[in-house]
Write a protein that binds this DNA or RNA. Sequence first.
DNA 1: CCATTTGCCTAAAGCCTTTAGGTAGACGCA
DNA 2: TGCGTCTACCTAAAGGCTTTAGGCAAATGG
Lengths: 189, 189
Amino acid sequence: MARAGLNAERLVRAGAELADEAGFDQVTVSALARRFDVKVASLYSHVKSSQDLRTGIALLALEEMADRGDAALAGRAGKDALAALADVYRDYAREHPGRYAAARLPLDPATAAASAGGRHARMTRAVLRGYDLAEPESTHAVRLLGSVFHGYVDLELAGGFSHSAPDSQESWSRIIDALDALLRNWPAA
Amino acid sequence: MARAGLNAERLVRAGAELADEAGFDQVTVSALARRFDVKVASLYSHVKSSQDLRTGIALLALEEMADRGDAALAGRAGKDALAALADVYRDYAREHPGRYAAARLPLDPATAAASAGGRHARMTRAVLRGYDLAEPESTHAVRLLGSVFHGYVDLELAGGFSHSAPDSQESWSRIIDALDALLRNWPAA
DNA sequence: CCATTTGCCTAAAGCCTTTAGGTAGACGCA
DNA sequence: TGCGTCTACCTAAAGGCTTTAGGCAAATGG
């Protein structure tokens, strides 16, 4: 019999595509086996479990977003950097909704520590360097930015802003304007 | 044989409890049947499908949050109202993580229209009445507040802020301070 | 008190997950 | 080139969740 030439990485990559096409919750070992025209049990040589597969997709997504973030932040500062990083998340989620959903998967502490999660925190802190915030306020600001980015993208993806004026792009721009103004003018504790 | 006395409402309510205890993705018709010590198929007289059950829990959660929101907003305005509404979402999510997750379930348009979703939008608009924002800026602000509330709560629930100083409560307070300052000082378009 | 309704049951089919154990390509090495 | 080993993929099987079909008995009410 001809072999399909599977390995863990190809499976995770195919799982990511499947997630984008059909939704992250449709990512199953069975569906992936169908996609490679292979029996289900065969995949268990490459992947420990269904959960393991999903975790792999999550790690891939975190990595890809971090790579885009680094590229976007290079040579930028201040509002420019803020807008660039914000767009990285939003664009990624729109291009890869399934992967984005995967990135929200809770990871066990060890896996999380080995993930690109730390890079994301560092990127947000890098953006804040363009503003004048000392600890602990800068941590509060990191959390605010994370919340807005994630919250907006999540609501937009869920269709929250789709069928009413003004369009989502306009709100997004104005929200970035507002965040920039807020960071330049952070209220005293 | 004695009857268990099931009906759609009791099932949804028990499903909500199960969601809070075990996680929304553990809410299955089978688990619910076990909980009532009844055969699985019996539940299908009361619930159309597993999806239908989950939708019921989502609607319950949206309703409960809206009720809390109305109560919290009564007699408050300005920053007081902002903080009250924000706490409604955060407290609800902490008390009922499974229900909160349920509320994020995508609903088909007809169901969404019949849900308490509209009440939530109105509550946020009510908060904004305490600030001086005209359209379309107030819509942008509604979306910003929704994003922050949802984003923060979601990240906090996922454990994002748990193991590092400053503690989450402090960030939350300061973020509300910041949002209040921002709304009082919304940048010109 | 009997008829109808209806709440819960058994049976069964379909799909997903996961483990155990087998077979035959692929690969390294003499 | 031929042999042995490794390993990619397979069959088989067990267990769980979903959903439909059809049956019986408890509740309801005229």
